[in-house]
């Protein structure tokens, strides 16, 4: 029924995913939402690499290995992020990233 997806289709998908992720990062006010969007962009990148592994360098598994590492790193990143979110929440009782502007209130003067 469907034509076999070519590299272009896959890349388009990945680009869409990336854009959606970025959009989410810049519009979500909740930090966790932002984190989710970041994961989405990461996933688009992962997808990208897999696509290239499949279509460009299919005789090697380098891309897949790289992806595994990325997943691990992303997990670590998420852990640290969540920890920071928790401690941020303890101070502010909110996870609204737009509220994270106290530093500038204090230090941003134009003498």
């Amino acid at each position: 029924m469907f034509p076999t997806p070519t590299i272009t289709h896959w890349l388009t998908l990945s680009a869409l995913l990336f854009s959606i992720g970025l959009y989410g990062i810049f519009t979500r006010r909740n930090a966790v939402g932002v984190l989710l969007s970041i994961e989405m962009t990461l996933n688009s990148a992962i997808l990208n690499i897999l696509i290239f592994n499949r279509f460009v360098a299919s005789d090697e598994v380098d891309g897949q290995v790289l992806v595994l590492f990325i997943i691990a790193a992303a997990a670590a990143e998420a852990v640290v992020a969540l920890a920071i979110f928790v401690s941020f929440y303890r101070h502010r009782h909110t996870l609204d990233v737009t509220q994270a502007n106290h530093i500038c209130d204090q230090g941003n003067s134009t003498s």
């Binding site: 990143e77 941020f88 994270a100």
Partner: peptide, 10 residues
């Protein structure tokens, strides 16, 4: 410090 961490990590 937490706020800075938040910004930095995002």
């Amino acid at each position: 410090s937490c706020e800075a961490g938040l910004k930095y990590i995002i």
